[in-house]
């Protein structure tokens, strides 16, 4: 299967197979005006299978959450058909309004206007905790 190269845009490569749709939804890529390709189960020498997302257009998009969802993702910035920047996303110190606290006793369950904020507590183990009740964020916590 061939998906054409993009001239200017962003390619999210080395996404763990099966996580592509989660990233697509979390980054709300379906709401963009530009063309977006989600490729699942692509062959990979290194990973066996991987997902890839290609976004045609150099849009301003906050990719920090990728550090939590899949820290192995490579972000490639494409300019005039060439990769001008390639980087891994570091874990953000805080994640705001992307994860939802799953603790039914948390104040966020009743105060609707409160931001859902998670703080990085253990970088080595990629552990984020709710700033209100300290409940650990899981991948399923992504809103």
């Amino acid at each position: 299967m061939i998906v054409g190269q993009i001239k200017d845009g962003i390619v999210l490569d080395h996404i763990k197979a099966g996580r592509g749709m989660k990233i697509y939804d979390t980054l709300k890529l379906g709401e963009l005006d530009c063309a977006v390709a989600l490729i699942v189960n692509a062959d990979s020498e290194k990973m066996g299978k991987k997902d890839i997302i290609k976004i045609s257009g150099l849009i301003d998009i906050d990719l920090h959450i990728l550090g939590f969802i899949d820290p192995d993702v490579t972000v490639n910035i494409i300019n005039d058909g060439k990769v001008v920047k390639r980087e891994k996303i570091a874990l953000p110190e805080t994640i705001t309004d992307i994860l939802k606290c799953k603790n039914p006793r948390c104040i966020t369950t009743v105060e609707q206007e409160l931001q859902h904020v998670f703080k990085l507590c253990d970088e080595g183990n990629k552990v984020y905790r709710c700033i209100y009740c300290e409940t650990k964020a899981e991948l399923e916590s992504v809103k």
Binding site: C106, I107, C133
Partner: peptide
């Protein structure tokens, strides 16, 4: 009874807040 409520209060109050137990 909700965990984190006193913390929320402390971010908005202009006086000291003491947590007397949250959940």
């Amino acid at each position: 009874h909700k965990e984190g409520a006193p913390y929320v209060a402390s971010t908005k109050a202009s006086i000291p807040v003491i947590n007397a137990g949250d959940g």
